[in-house]
Nucleic acid binder design. Structure first.
Ligand code: FES
Ligand code: FES
Lengths: 144, 144
DNA sequence: ATTATTTCGGACATTTTTGTCCTTTATTAA
DNA sequence: TTAATAAAGGACAAAAATGTCCGAAATAAT
């Protein structure tokens, strides 16, 4: 469904949101530990999130990553997914046609558009804030 | 969503079904041409389908691949997917946890189980026969 | 029997994804 | 100013997925 990079991105963004709610910037090292991901690779992922203005990065001592609570409200999962994995989840075809296309649909097109639309809706409505609250309330977890 | 190998497998199986309805065995070369896939790689995929008793292969002149119309009725998409991609689509976690787990769910677990269940249902109810009929009726296509 | 055809299967090659290492740049604090 | 800290980013490495090549095995027709 998502690439590893995207999985790390989502988990990292949730952790950063969650820490920022408590006024704490977090470092790469903390993030990688918390979401159980390889440090250097996670760094690359975070750079992409930074360039896409999803997270804010601050260099130097007492620096780190943060996401203002104000914007955590507005950031949807879909923004993270497209930043890392591109828009294949939106325009791609389940059977690998260049683009999903109503005019010349692949064999599973009509079965899949329903599910894909549900997925789109989910990604476009779920915010980082929501996900971070679930973590805070102990109903979901960042690692197993 | 699916691996390339699985995409080829699904398309190949549909084409074989469709040809078998008309009493025609098809060769690897015909299949690869029809579904627009690399020949040798498609051969590997077909070998897996053969070992999983999803398609029937006959060596030698006038040999090729076939799927008895009788069984095309019973073969579900899910069988092909699990034969090629394993059961990650059923047990895997959207964010890469070892297994999806209600007791220690990942941050998107509750959002995704609905969609995954829909996907499961779809794969478990869609038969090769149905898909091959759509091809036959010209409402779906094997290549773009 | 011989030959031609077609799948099987092992070995290898390429590409993509994932992961690592190390230097540079920015920033803070002493 | 200097030293310490932390992200940025380039280069490289490993692993996985995808793709190719070629000979072996089975089968049918001649
Ligand atoms: S054409 Fe394949 S999913 Fe739409
Ligand atoms: S635990 Fe991640 S999808 Fe269920």
């Amino acid at each position: 469904m998502f690439s590893k990079a995207c999985e790390y991105a989502i988990k990292a963004a949730i952790f950063i949101t969650s820490s920022s709610e408590e006024g704490e910037r977090v470092s790469l090292i903390q993030i990688a530990k918390e979401i159980d991901s390889p440090e250097a690779y996670t760094a690359k992922v975070l750079q992409k999130l930074t360039k896409n203005n999803i997270v804010n990065s601050i260099k130097g001592p007492s620096g780190g990553f943060e996401i203002k609570p104000k914007s955590a409200n507005k950031i949807k999962l879909s923004q993270i997914v497209t930043a890392i994995d591109g828009d294949s989840i939106y325009n791609g075809c389940a059977l690998g046609f260049g683009k999903c296309n109503d005019q010349k649909p692949c064999p599973v097109h009509f079965q899949f558009i329903g599910i894909r639309n549900d997925l789109k809706a989910l990604l476009q409505t779920t915010t980082l804030k929501t996900l971070s609250q679930d973590i805070h309330n102990g109903i979901t977890f960042l690692k197993q």
